[in-house]
Design a protein around this nucleic acid. Structure first.
Lengths: 338, 338
DNA sequence: CTGTTAGCGCCTTCAT
DNA sequence: ATGAAGGCGCTAACAG
């Protein structure tokens, strides 16, 4: 059995109140008694029972994280950023995944309620957000990569999905590409919608025809989409995958079909995952400061936790992204520009 | 404020004990009162305060997960497997990372103590284990991919690091390779040591000379190791990376050096990460059932939690792994076999 | 069957 | 400056 405050008090020959006081510094204690208590604490290796603390309405020290899933580099990067910042703040993460649907989401939020001091939610699927607003869990909430909504009583941390793809498309155009295809992400995902929007606007702006292919956020989806790409005539000279995984699938399929990248077709992705620097060829993509965004969200909710009745308004931060040009794209061959 | 058991009792016009009884089925309750209680519970959207439960020595519902870090596909796969099984068991994960050193490890374990019903620890660094044995947290513990130790009062879930590399090396030998190099993982990591051992034994067995290069588990390490490989004369016809990331780094560097894979040199990895099926060329590797191992560990600790004073002995499971031959390896060119 | 009571470990008035 | 007592939400003996 672990030691309780009573054990410490007995060993130090004082009352539990005194122990509590030296531990929390809530009011002055004589130096001699304080020393005794501290000694007893060390000897017994005492630590307050967190359950008792949270029963008293104190902090639990936990930060809840709700993710649609935890698979893949994007989320592992995110989790990494969250965890790092949480550690810095002396807090721990309570992670719960696979909440794509509203109902699951609600259940998870309820389960976490009372066990965490704040919630960080990554809910790209529009549907989840309404669920989120339902949760009146009382603790501060931050949303990540979520459609902003002024009605939402929470901070929102996004990155520039729209601008990223728009700039990426613009880069390809500058390189002489005219037939640029886009493999779409999941239709329900807000970030995917934003990205297509960026593509369309860039194509419109250059007076070029948009060519969209159904896809998804997985390597499998990208792989499958390649077939449609290959069947086109004339074939696009460049293709943008909805995210890096999609682009990786695209490259893999193209390689299998003996279509040279970037020789015959330029390929690019989105997210800037660490692995994209090591693919063959290295992938041109849009770098998103995922870890940094996660860390910001943590720092934000932590400050909200400590915030007294300070009605600081909710913020909506949009992190800038940067186009990273590598070897999977190349200027369009002049003669290919039929 | 959320509803308490008192609110429910008042609304239903019964005592709190009755509410507790219908909720826990601890003893019979009249149907009419039961109905009233149930109605009140629903109306108030009542859920027991987890802090109160755990203060009473009940379960918290949490499973603590201690990882060295959370970055990379290996850990995201693992986490995925853990989370899935935890959800199935109606439990949630409390994740804490970056505990490579003993001291950090101890701190994390202490912090998690009392907030979780069990602990799952991935501690490939030998050092951490001693720390782990120190933790007398009272809750069941399961170790993942850790040097087995009979003194350890915990279940251990490993996979066949040794046999995997031995078989992989054997496969290359069968394909005619004679000069096979190995890029080592981190020296302190138990699994890395096991893998080199598999390589050495296989080379010894075939009466071939082992050629080892310092490396690591990261893409960067693999990338850097390639320089040494390239400087060798005669150059090896095949190389094994300590893990998939290392192999990916190797492939990337080889590509940059204009050395064809597998044309001039065969490359393989270890872990069987999802992404290895989509690299160019697709990577030959050793598939490890990571998710499955994680799930098993969760199921195990959950059953230990529910286990009464049942002194079931600690188990050490070693999951089999399988060599997956893909396009990054090819039979050795006869003329290359100087 | 059901209501009352005593804690679980801790912090916080309230007295002293 | 310090000890005693109340109570956070809940379950598990106790009485009826």
């Amino acid at each position: 059995m672990t030691a309780t405050i009573h054990d410490v008090a007995r060993r130090a020959g004082v009352s539990i109140s005194t122990v509590s006081r030296v531990l929390n510094g809530s009011s002055p204690v004589n130096d001699d008694k304080r020393a005794l208590v501290l000694e007893a604490v060390k000897a017994l290796d005492y630590a307050p029972n967190p359950a008792a603390l949270s029963l008293l309405g104190k902090r639990t020290g936990g930060i809840g994280v709700l993710l649609p899933f935890v698979t893949g580099e994007f989320f592992s990067e995110l989790l990494s950023g969250l965890d790092e910042a949480a550690q810095d703040a002396g807090r721990f993460l309570v992670v719960s995944t696979s909440h794509c649907r509203t109902e699951e989401f609600r259940r998870a939020a309820r389960a976490l309620d009372k066990r965490v001091d704040a919630l960080i939610v990554a809910a790209p699927e529009t549907e989840s957000i309404s669920a989120a607003s339902i949760l009146s869990t009382g603790v501060p909430v931050a949303f990540l990569n979520t459609r902003p909504d002024d009605a939402l009583e929470a901070d929102v941390f996004n990155f520039d999905n729209y601008g990223g793809v728009r700039d990426l498309t613009g880069h390809l155009q500058n390189e002489g590409h005219r037939r640029i295809a886009y493999v779409r992400g999941p239709a329900e995902a807000w970030d995917a919608q934003e990205r297509v929007r960026g593509y369309r606007d860039a194509m419109d702006h250059a007076d070029l025809e948009a060519t969209e292919i159904d896809g998804g956020y997985s390597r499998e989806a990208g792989h499958a989409a390649a077939a449609h790409l290959l069947a086109m005539s004339p074939r696009p000279t460049a293709v943008i995958g909805a995210n890096d995984y999609c682009a990786l699938g695209l490259m893999s399929a193209l390689h299998q079909a003996n279509v040279a990248v970037p020789g015959e077709i330029s390929v690019c992705g989105f997210d800037g995952l660490p692995s994209t620097g090591y693919t063959v060829p290295a992938l041109t993509t849009v770098h998103v400061p995922i870890r940094e965004i996660g860390a910001r969200a943590v720092r934000r909710v932590v400050s909200r936790i400590n915030e007294r009745a300070d009605p600081e308004p909710y913020r909506h931060e949009v992190a800038p992204v940067t186009v990273v040009v590598r070897d999977s794209t190349t200027p369009a061959d002049a003669e290919a520009l039929t």
